[in-house]
Each structure stands twice: as C-alpha cells, then as structure tokens.
Amino acid sequence: MRTLLVAAPGLVLAGIGLTHPHHLDASTAQWWQNMHIILAVVFPLLGAAQWVLLGDSPKYVRYPARAAAFGYVVFYGALDALAGIGGGAMTLANGGRSPADEPLFRIGNQLGHVGAWCFFAASLAIAVCALLQNKVRAVPGAAFLVLGSFLFLDSHIYWPKGVLACTCIAIGLAATSYASASGRSPIEPSTRT
C-alpha cells in the first residue's frame, strides 16, 4: 500500500502536466488558475512521500532531508500560489497578461527554484540511503528518482520534460519503497517515524 501511495502524487502530476498550458494568456487563464488550485493540493503530497520514505534513513540523514522536503513543500507551494493561482487570476481580471503581473512570476519562480532544489536534495538523500541499505535492489528506484528530480529542477510539470520528470519521480519513489519493503523480513516492520 505504501508503494502505491508514494507513487500516486507523481502520476497525478504527470497526468495534469499533459494539460498544462505552455503560455498564460486570456484564453488559458481560467484553466491555468483552476489547475494550480488543484496542484496546490497535489504538489505537497510529493514532499509527504519523501517524508515517509525518509523514515527508513538514519537520524543524521533523516532530519536534514526531512527539513529539505519541508522546504520543497513551502517554497514550491509559494510558486504555485503566486505564479499559478495569482498569475491566472490577474490575467483573468486584466483580460490578458500585463506588466503588473511580472513581480508575481519573478518572485514565484525564484521561490519555486529554491523548492525544486530542496526536493532534489531530499530525493538524493533517499536514493543514497536506499542504495546503502538495499544494495542492488535499490538501483532502479534510485536512478529514476534522481533523474526525475534533476529534470524537475527546471521543468515544472510542462509537457514533455515535466511530465517525464513527474513520471520518473513516481516510478523512483515506488521502486524505492518496494525495495525497502522487500528487504525487510515479515516480522521486521519499519518502526521509525
């Protein structure tokens, strides 16, 4: 069940990414705004998936990596609120883009960049710990997770790169969860929180 739950946010984001407009204008503003309201709920679930998988990590990795996952949720959420919801709302109100909305996109993108690097750092910690704990079983998950997180640094969820990034993240999180669960004996459940 954990494996399915950690994969779900990335898969949902990849699906929504197929509909993400490449340009914000009067014709796309309504979906842009509404889509980012939905994304405001889904994006944090990626950080929650990282938080769960970091439960298998040693404390000296778990705490800073969970701080990075929290940073992702906060800073990437700010991007979604400002450039996504706010930018869409301003474009709707103005009947198109205007110079007045540029500050929203500038600060939103800056905060989103910080959030994406936080996500990458937490993913790297998950991948390294999984490799150390589960050896060869963890290689596919670690590879997909690191690749997807790297692509996510500058792709958001736009087609095609962003959709590929989210798909790789979903596969990586699921495979890492599966490798971790299959590495435990049936009487040895994870007790870390």
Rank of each mutant, 00 (worst) to 15 (best):
F70A: 14
A116G: 09
G148W: 03
P140T: 05
D56N: 11
A142H: 03
L18W: 11
L18D: 08
W31H: 11
A26V: 13
G115R: 00
G87V: 01
L124F: 08
C168K: 01
I37W: 10
G71N: 03
G162A: 12
W32F: 07
A127N: 02
F120N: 04
L164K: 11
T3E: 13
N34K: 12
A65R: 02
A14T: 06
I157T: 07
V136I: 14
G77S: 06
L24P: 02
A67E: 05
G172D: 02
A7P: 02
A143H: 07
S149Y: 00
A78G: 03
A170V: 03
I171H: 04
I85W: 00
C118Y: 01
V139C: 12
S123Q: 01
V74E: 06
S190D: 15
K59N: 13
Y60P: 08
A83R: 03
A143N: 09
M35N: 05
A179I: 06
L45P: 03
S185N: 14
P186T: 13
A48G: 11
V6K: 01
T3W: 06
S149K: 03
A83S: 09
L173I: 03
E102T: 15
P44Y: 05
H22M: 13
L54P: 00
A121S: 12
A68Y: 01
Y158L: 14
L82D: 04
A125C: 08
I107V: 15
W31Q: 08
A65P: 01
P64Q: 07
G115L: 01
T28S: 15
A122R: 02
P189Y: 11
A69M: 02
V6R: 00
L124G: 05
V136N: 13
S182G: 10
A165R: 11
A170D: 02
K59T: 13
A29W: 00
F150S: 15
L82A: 06
L46S: 05
L82W: 04
G47T: 05
P64C: 08
F150H: 12
I38F: 10
H36A: 06
A8L: 15
Y72D: 02
G88P: 01
G84C: 04
A48H: 05
Y158P: 08
F150N: 10
V42S: 03
H20V: 08
A122Q: 03
L53C: 00
I187E: 15
D154L: 13
G141D: 00
P99Y: 05
P189L: 12
D154Y: 14
D80P: 03
K135R: 15
D80K: 03
V74G: 04
D80V: 10
W51V: 04
F119M: 13
T3P: 06
V42R: 05
F150Q: 10
S177H: 00
A174N: 04
G71M: 04
Y72W: 09
R97K: 15
L164Q: 12
E188P: 10
Q50T: 07
T28C: 08
Q133C: 09
I107Q: 08
N34W: 13
L131F: 12
G108L: 05
